[in-house]
Design a protein around this nucleic acid. Structure first.
Lengths: 292, 292
DNA sequence: TTGCTCCTCACGTCACGTGAGGTGGC
DNA sequence: TTGCTCCTCACGTCACGTGAGGTGGC
């Protein structure tokens, strides 16, 4: 009890002294973070002591460091040790670091998009996004294709085997087609490609009955934590534009291919027959990447 | 109307294809950002077309750049020109830049606090905050004080003149005392100090009646956009600790003094009489600063 | 017929800001 | 007595997530 305790301010005056809004002070009272030194029993007026200014300032300082109010309540608890405070500060630091990085990458993406739009004079044709892909079960066949010209024909044959196998096994709920290109670089000969369809987890029972036909086999496709994706809608023929857009985006934003196959997911359109190259399809280019 | 339009998916399937949660799709429907291609009249089931995937991806791409959903609605409007989109991107870029800087500074403050707590082994005695101070009216007197030893005496005399003047003018609602130190550096002789009290705007009328007594005069104190502050509670004698804390914080966080007087705001305790140096006071050190 | 999917409310999140409607203090 | 300050609800913010309670489809 020293003489400053006697000095009581009404909420408005305390608000001015502390540079904090009145609703904020009421809020802190409500959640028990800063209770008024005294509340008048008849008028319900809140009265604050100047001695509460240091606590309020400590609250504001922690808020400024990015802590939530309930975390601040813990930090101000009398029982908390300096060691625990250090721990919370380190956590907060890690989080702030992460946020800063995210914001920097976001900035890079905005710049990238702005550059594209200024070069092309209109909205870019493809919206490139970064996703994470989960692990998946697939049934597929992998084959080395000698030249580009034979690719369509081989793909058709590969999917024919896959659908044959599934029919034999009685699997009816297979997902969309997924093409994978295993070559590290884009080449025109000896193309190492894998045709597959995804399977829902519920197909587990049927999987054991899968006969092995023409090299078709069950696989688990690993998850891809960072994947650059773009959806192409239109003629199969034009899909290269989507691929170009994806690689431009990667160059702009500082990503490179991870050592994992490029995927082509067929949301619409089947390869098991030689489809018209001008027929409309909806497919998604998925390139597993890593930061450079 | 091309053949892909026929392919309609229920919300769950579309959600899986697009990697977006069902509540999110419902939300976008509700706010009109992405309406289902078809809604069953009897069951109210939403049906989406794969043709809507590009629009959804555009939405996600813009969300990824940090736009709010209503801004995205504008960006996707058919009437919007590439020029307007560029404008919004530039605005967004400026904002992202600001956010990144803020996060970087926050990080620096966390590190600073962590360092202090590790050096001292306990919570720091002072919570330093960065505030902006508004412009203010003050009544005060400025004087050159030869040596430190005479300071207390001079301050007392200066405030005596100020309170005399206010009494003469009939001003009763003067605010707290505000001491200002005009020397650019801390020195022990020829201290250029100004004693003042703040005035509320409502005192305007009384101000014209102010007699000029012993150099006491009305002034407007400029706003300080960036000010490092610390509240000291305790003996006047110990206030130097608060000052040290403020300057340490400045060094840690990359700030230096702006060319503006250091202020000492007396929330509690009056100088117009020589008060006991051990008497408890509540005062705030305010140092106008700028980034290095 | 039984799961599975879908539907529509309604409430919670986070830290307050902003009225509405009413009262105390100088 | 008149402004001024204070009070307590109650609602809005932003982009959904999470049940509750009920129904359609294979």
């Amino acid at each position: 009890m020293n003489s400053t305790s006697a000095q009581l301010l009404r909420i408005g005056d305390f608000s001015r002294v502390a540079q904090v809004s009145v609703p904020t002070l009421r809020h802190y009272d409500e959640i028990g973070l800063l209770l008024p030194a005294h509340i008048d029993k008849f008028t319900d007026y809140r009265h604050y002591s100047l001695d509460q200014l240091p606590r309020l300032n400590r609250i504001l300082a922690f808020k400024d460091l990015g802590f939530a109010l309930d975390e601040i309540a813990n930090l101000l608890d009398d029982d908390v040790t300096p060691e625990q405070i250090r721990g919370m500060l380190r956590l907060r630091m890690a989080d702030a670091t992460r946020q800063m990085r995210e914001e920097a990458q976001r900035l890079q993406r905005i710049e990238s998009r702005l550059r594209r739009i200024e070069q092309e004079g209109r909205a870019p044709a493809y919206d490139v996004t970064l996703k994470q892909l989960p692990q998946q079960r697939i049934v597929g066949v992998r084959r080395m294709v000698p030249t580009l010209r034979e690719m369509a024909e081989h793909r058709c044959a590969m999917y024919a085997s896959i659908y044959d196998t599934l029919r034999e096994a009685g699997v009816r709920n297979a997902g969309p087609e997924l093409m994978m290109y295993h070559n590290e670089e884009f080449i025109e000969t000896d193309i190492d490609m894998e045709a597959a369809v995804t399977l829902p987890a519920s197909a587990d029972a049927a999987i054991n009955r899968l006969p092995v036909l023409a090299g078709v086999r069950l696989n688990t496709l690993a998850a891809s934590p960072e994947t650059v994706c773009a959806v192409h809608r239109g003629a199969t023929f034009d899909v290269t534009q989507a691929i170009v857009a994806v690689f431009q985006w990667m160059a702009d934003n500082g990503y490179r291919c991870a050592h994992s196959a490029v995927r082509e997911l067929h949301h619409y359109g089947r390869e098991n027959e030689l489809i018209d190259i001008n027929a409309p399809v909806v497919l998604e280019i998925q390139v597993p990447v890593q930061r450079v």
